[in-house]
């Protein structure tokens, strides 16, 4: 597909806008056009937060997502708010740590313990956004792995660079090691 529309949703403070920026930066490195729009409430923390990334080999005129191809939900509120709007073909990644989602009875829905993996395997749940990016990209193949690593390096402070690269890897492995358990049937 020439264009991918991605919604990264969760709570304010979970780093979704940064995740969107990293993903877009990586796509840009792959030679794609990108647009990252953010939508958030008046709060700096908590409240619903959403980053929208459009990746396309064409010019991106309308800058917001009209029909998501990929949806990430890192919070219950975000799941409740955004899941109902996606169609059956969309790939959905839900954080299994905190989000209670009913059995949804369709393909392309993945539940992975993203926040828990961040906390347990990287040492801080602050990097759950990057764990999610690693997982999301392993599932959806949005950008090249190399570009994604470069983008993480570029957009994170030197002090936290190694931690974030590790988070990316943790996300990827989460998909590779546990495909059948998490995929809904």
């Amino acid at each position: 597909m020439a264009t991918k529309q991605i919604q990264l949703t969760g709570a304010g403070g979970q780093g979704l806008v940064l995740a969107g920026i990293i993903l877009a930066e990586a796509a840009m490195r792959d030679g794609k056009n990108v647009a990252v729009a953010q939508s958030y409430g008046p709060e700096a923390r908590l409240g619903a937060s959403k980053a929208e990334v459009i990746i396309s080999s064409e010019k991106i005129a309308y800058p917001q997502v009209t029909q998501p191809d990929v949806l990430l939900c890192l919070s219950q509120d975000a799941f409740d708010k955004y899941f109902s709007a996606v169609n059956d073909r969309a790939l959905v990644l839900i954080d299994a740590t905190h989000v209670q989602a009913p059995t949804l009875g369709r393909n392309n829905i993945y539940r992975l313990p993203l926040v828990r993996a961040a906390a347990e395997q990287v040492g801080t749940k602050l990097v759950a956004n990057v764990v999610a990016l690693g997982a999301l990209n392993a599932l959806a193949g949005l950008v090249s792995w190399e570009s994604l690593q470069k983008a993480v390096e570029q957009r994170t402070p030197a002090k936290f660079r190694a931690q974030n690269l590790r988070a990316l890897e943790v996300g990827r492995r989460l998909v590779e090691n546990t495909p059948h358990q998490t995929k809904e049937v």
């Binding site: 877009a24 794609k32 056009n33 990108v34 647009a35 990252v36 729009a37 953010q38 800058p63 917001q64």
Partner: peptide
Amino acid sequence: EVLAHLREN
């Protein structure tokens, strides 16, 4: 608001 916050290549 959208353009102010929009990031593009």
